[in-house]
Design a protein around this nucleic acid. Structure first.
Length: 545
DNA sequence: AAGGAGAGCAACCGCACGGCT
DNA sequence: TAGCCGTGCGGTTGCTCTCCT
């Protein structure tokens, strides 16, 4: 550090206090720019100087601060410091749920207009909001979750359009999967299939530069071209909208992400995410599923059957009622009139559950390459990820049903496959996570074989489940919309019993990560998780017992 | 217990834009 | 009209902290 003309700053330096260390991070080490101005963390002395100056002269004309106060900082830096840290009535600390909610609303309304948003969030700065938003975006991207809750409608215009082909939902009306499905209320849902290059594939690793895309981090108002490569495109506008109609169940919009998140993001370690693991048995030490959040309710809607062992169960719908939980139904329509594989097109019109747990009905044509991908997966039996994908594809095909999760699972399987380069060992590790889990699944195999009174159909269904357990990420609670953590409470496992199985044990088959720092888990979330898990457990119990 | 990886954060830079002179 | 200034924003950097192995 060099001289600075004997300014007040020089005096401050004599008693330089530790840089502001208000909780992690920092702007880097202290450096001096080519213009002799200091950079880096501000000291308390600098803060004092700046505060005194502003108190005396008021805000504005920041370039004069350096001249008049002796602060060896550029005006811009002074303004930033004042605005972000020294200004009175600044609210520090984590955002409250109300503030988070407000940010969502404001962002939906204004886009990346941080200052504008900050003006409506007393005590919060634009930088703070920006950091929060970017963190949220990254987090939810990692979790493969949409950004906006249902009741927050994005009202700002979209300046850029997606250029990456994707399934773009057009219209949807959905239903709470935790609500009984009423007669004749089949929701409708449409996908707009954008053109896709035959060589393009969702979720492929970025081996080549991705096409220009709308970044979730970019401002919808922004007019300059964005070529962000860090994130796959997510269009929060073109999303699924679902509605929870129950008074006890908040209404929300599920902004279903376009097929996004290649393996790198999805498979990165994420401390907040929910992890879904195979059924837990004794000696299972850890939960190493590398897959991240998706919605468990989808699983319940799948027709998890081996394509060669389709059970002759037609149109069965079961109602699962827990004494402590609201009843709900999982539509389980087994339609064995499905056309033979392969099919050139998906004609999807039946109900299925959304990634948010809502029931969708789809009228869609998938991109041709996606269909071919599916077919390819079906033909690849050795690769577990492909098996899982093929299983799901077959199930979807057979039932004319296909959910967003199904798509995503297939695509994640693609991604895995692409990442593993067809390496079975990697795939094995990836799906099963570890030899421990494989052992667990093997044990589960034996258990099912010994307990199943039916023929091999159920066993193959079980195998499909097992594969899914290894590959399907966990659910997201609806109430996680306003919680970035995506964490859920484990409270669902308490005090619940079932006729045939200890439901606590069953619930433990669907472990939900609970991290102490997030105490915002509402009772609703717990109920929801509980309801879901109970439902899933029932499904499994019914299928395999 | 130690090291690595990742998350979160403060601060910075470059650019763009608008108001004022 | 041009230049200055303040402001807003996207993106980046580098630090600390936390978690995982």
């Amino acid at each position: 550090m060099t001289t600075n003309n004997g300014s007040i700053w020089e005096l401050h330096r004599e008693g330089m206090l530790p840089p502001d260390s208000s909780g992690g991070g920092g702007g880097g080490h202290v450096v001096e720019g080519s213009d002799g101005l200091k950079k880096g963390p501000w000291t308390a002395a600098e803060d004092q100087t700046l505060m005194q100056y502003v108190r005396k002269h008021g805000e504005g004309n920041w370039n004069a601060v350096q001249r008049n106060s002796g602060l060896n900082r550029c005006g811009k830096s002074c303004r930033l410091r004042w605005a972000n840290h020294l200004r009175p009535n600044l609210k520090k600390g984590v955002f409250s749920p109300e503030e988070e909610r407000r940010i969502l609303e404001l962002h939906a309304k204004y886009g990346n207009k941080w200052a504008r948003m900050a003006s409506q969030l007393p005590g919060r700065t634009d930088n703070e909001i920006k950091n929060y938003w970017n963190t949220r975006v990254k987090r939810r991207q990692r979790q493969c979750l949409p950004l906006y809750p249902h009741d927050i409608k994005q009202s700002h215009s979209q300046a850029t359009s997606l250029t990456i082909p994707s399934l773009t939902p057009l219209t949807t009306t959905t239903q709470n999967p935790f609500q009984p499905i009423t007669n004749g209320s089949t929701p409708t849902f449409s996908f707009q299939t954008q053109t896709q290059s035959p060589t393009q594939s969702h979720h492929l690793p970025p081996l080549s530069p991705p096409p220009p895309s709308l970044s979730p981090l970019s401002s919808p108002h922004q007019t300059k071209p964005t070529t962000l490569t860090s994130f796959p495109p997510f269009d929060p506008i073109n999303t699924i909208t679902s509605s929870f109609s129950s008074s006890s169940t908040p209404s929300f919009t599920f902004h279903r992400p376009a097929p996004i998140l290649g393996a790198p993001l999805c498979h990165k370690r994420y401390r907040d995410s929910i992890v879904f693991s195979p059924p837990r048995f004794p000696n299972l030490k850890r939960n190493t599923s590398m897959f991240r959040t998706r919605s468990m309710p989808d699983i319940a809607s799948f027709q998890l059957t081996d394509s060669n062992s389709m059970p002759a169960i037609a149109s069965l719908t079961r109602t699962y009622s827990m004494s402590d939980n609201p009843s709900f139904e999982f539509p389980m329509t087994f339609d064995h009139s499905f056309p033979p594989l392969p099919r050139s097109q998906f004609d999807l019109s039946d109900n299925f559950l959304s990634p948010a747990g809502s029931v969708y009905s789809v009228q869609s044509e998938l991109p041709s390459n996606q269909v071919s991908q599916t077919q390819l997966q079906i033909s690849i039996g050795n690769n577990l990820s492909s098996v899982a994908g093929a299983t799901l594809a077959a199930a979807a095909d057979e039932t004319h049903s296909r959910s967003g999760l199904l798509d995503d699972l297939l695509q994640e399987a693609d991604a895995l496959e692409a990442y593993g380069g067809g390496n079975n060992s990697r795939t094995t590790n990836g799906i099963l996570g570890s030899s421990e889990e494989k052992h667990v699944l093997d044990g589960y195999d034996q258990w099912l074989q010994s307990t199943s009174s039916v023929d091999g159909h159920l066993y193959s269904m079980h195998k499909d489940f097992s594969k899914l357990f290894g590959s399907i990420p966990s659910s997201e609670s609806v109430s996680d919309w306003y919680s970035d953590s995506g964490e859920v409470s484990n409270a669902h496992s308490s005090g619940i019993t079932d006729v045939s199985l200890d439901m606590q044990q069953m619930a433990s088959m669907f472990p939900a990560d609970a991290t102490a720092e997030h105490g915002r888990a509402s009772s609703f979330r717990e109920e929801e998780q509980l309801s879901y898990h109970m439902g899933m457990n029932k499904v499994i119990m019914t299928q395999y017992s």
